[in-house]
């Protein structure tokens, strides 16, 4: 490469200048004022409310500062609920990833131009109410349900999974699978075709191209997907109520019950414990997601 150094520098500077040039409407300070309602709104209804949980979680009914709401997590019932929720959320996340990644790979190939279609297919079920869709799984899974009817038609042994942790995992995978597929698909379609072709030209076979090019480039999407599935799965109380019967209690159920009974301080304290796990996964996400500023999520 015999490009003179000064030309190269100038090129780089020009590129940088182009890059810095963003849209400016009127005086750029005026346009920044447009974010004012948003900032007020988010401060009032996102930031301050989170501090309210902190306040309630760290005080008791007499407004004395205390840690007893948080230490309640070590109570055997609560501890069991938290551990079970962590376990089921982890299992569902892994299953979602295993199902979603191949799907995203296939979709990337088959609908190069039609990416709106994929998003639609994934979002469309949301127009049927989420509670009803979960209730429909009762129909499929129960003793005389659809699944067992099909199994007995085929002379296979019937399954008894309704009101077990398995049913809850199934409900989680069902409800949160789209949140794993979409971010992975979004990064996969953005991978430059030339990069893949270059790898092929340089002699990499299909598997090597996948392992050395596609997989590493798709990691940000995978991480987004994992957070988008793990957090709602960890904190759900609806899926466990509908598919787990009344005996299986997750940490979400415990918190919901505390609030239903009016024990806001206890509920907030347990929420703070839950938020530790949420913050952890957010931290992991932001570590991998510096560049895109969150655009992998959708």
């Amino acid at each position: 490469m015999n490009v003179p150094l000064n030309v190269k520098n100038r090129l780089q500077q020009k590129r940088k200048k182009d890059h810095d040039r963003t849209l400016k409407i009127g005086k750029s300070n005026n346009i920044k004022l447009l974010s004012f309602p948003y900032i007020i709104w988010m401060a009032g209804f996102i930031i301050i409310p989170l501090f309210m949980i902190l306040y309630y979680g760290l005080t008791n009914k007499n407004k004395h500062i205390t840690l007893e709401n948080i230490t309640l997590i070590s109570n055997p019932i609560n501890q069991k609920a938290l551990l079970l929720a962590l376990e089921l959320a982890l299992i569902s996340t892994v299953i979602c990833l295993l199902l979603a990644y191949p799907l995203a790979l296939i979709l990337r190939k088959s609908h190069k131009r039609n990416n709106s279609f994929i998003v639609l297919i994934m979002i469309l079920p949301m127009w049927m109410n989420f509670l009803l869709r979960t209730i429909a799984w009762q129909n499929i899974l129960e003793k005389t349900g659809v699944l067992n009817n099909i199994l007995s038609l085929l002379n296979l042994p019937t399954l008894n999974i309704i009101n077990t942790p398995t049913a809850i995992v199934l409900g989680m995978v069902y409800n949160f699978l789209p949140f794993m597929v979409l971010p992975i698909y979004n990064v996969l379609v953005k991978i430059d075709k030339d990069v893949i072709n270059a790898a092929r030209d340089l002699g990499a076979n299909g598997w090597q191209t996948f392992a050395k090019i596609i997989l590493p480039l798709s990691i940000p999407g995978v991480i987004s997907g994992i957070t988008m599935v793990f957090v709602p799965a960890l904190t759900t109380f609806v899926i466990s109520t509908i598919l787990g019967g009344s005996k299986i209690v997750l940490i979400g159920n415990v918190i919901e019950q505390q609030f239903r009974l009016g024990n806001w301080h206890t509920g907030s304290g347990l929420s703070l414990v839950l938020m530790v796990f949420i913050l952890l996964s957010m931290a992991i996400l932001s570590k991998y997601d510096k560049e895109s500023e969150g655009s992998h999520i959708w």
Binding site: M42, L234, S271, I278
Partner: peptide
């Protein structure tokens, strides 16, 4: 902007109720 998307619904719901 990402907080309500990544945060658990139950936490967002409780925090809004408290405010």
């Amino acid at each position: 902007t990402n907080i309500p998307m990544l945060n658990a619904d139950i936490v967002t719901g409780i925090s809004l109720m408290l405010i």
